[in-house]
Design a protein around this nucleic acid. Structure first.
Lengths: 134, 134
DNA sequence: CAGGATCCATGGGGATACTG
DNA sequence: CAGTATCCCCATGGATCCTG
């Protein structure tokens, strides 16, 4: 499998800043990036639209997230010099390309998270009072 | 089937702790989980093996990571009551199932990170001295 | 409307030392 | 060997207020 190839060429050296896996984690690891990307995949959004659509995100953080995404070339920022300021965000081609992998992961989540939850309950139940039964 | 619950209650409400996407981010968002999973996909590892193989991870953090993974049902922990303590970690079936999506993302990274890096350089160059040429 | 500026709480995660 | 126990730093991100 592909995984083996990667392993062969870069044997898990996550200290290497060039390690793709490492950078990937940085990218999708933060709290809002993925949500923003999946939102923008649907359609172009204005700042406020994203803000209300996602909910729970503060302007500062949303701005930061969007800037990071823009810097990485995943999102485009379009400013319209109008009287009521209008700024639209949309995915770039690169941004679109990451949607599929992201969607794959999301699909995994939707399908398996219940099992994860069950596993947690089992684990907690077995460890809360101390592993006796065995 | 899978989506109905999460989707039905709130399309994209990441405030809902049950939102699969949200939980997924929690899982793959931390610094070492993905590395550990991909390592264990190759073969079973002992604690020290993982430690040296991944490198840069402290025992405390590695333990924490493994515990979380175990709790989520992605990793199995096998303790051998021997004189020199031996503990082996391996992926569960569930753990194996997430490798493919993870690999997809990793493949994306390997293929597109260079573009991301370029985008960053362009962005930084364009913003460092002030956006004039606009 | 879009976001910059500030202050601050939380905790992930690193370093180090110790133990069953 | 396989962790535990502490201490500590600082990046992430939330709350609030302010502005072009």
């Amino acid at each position: 499998m592909r995984i083996m190839e990667a392993e062969a060429r870069r044997p898990g050296d996550i200290n290497d800043p060039d390690c793709p896996t490492r950078r990937l984690i940085d990218r999708v690891g933060d709290k809002w990036s993925v949500l923003v990307i999946l939102r923008l995949f649907e359609r172009t959004h204005r700042f406020s639209e994203l803000r209300t659509a996602i909910g729970g995100v503060t302007p500062k953080v949303l701005t930061h997230t969007l800037r990071a995404l823009e810097r990485d070339g995943l999102v485009e920022r379009h400013v319209y010099a109008e009287v009521p300021p209008r700024v639209e965000y949309r995915l770039t081609g690169l941004g679109h390309s990451i949607v599929a992998p992201l969607a794959a992961l999301r699909d995994w989540a939707e399908e398996h998270i219940p099992q994860v939850v069950q596993a947690r309950e089992r684990y907690d139940a077995a460890h809360a009072k101390g592993p006796e039964g065995e």
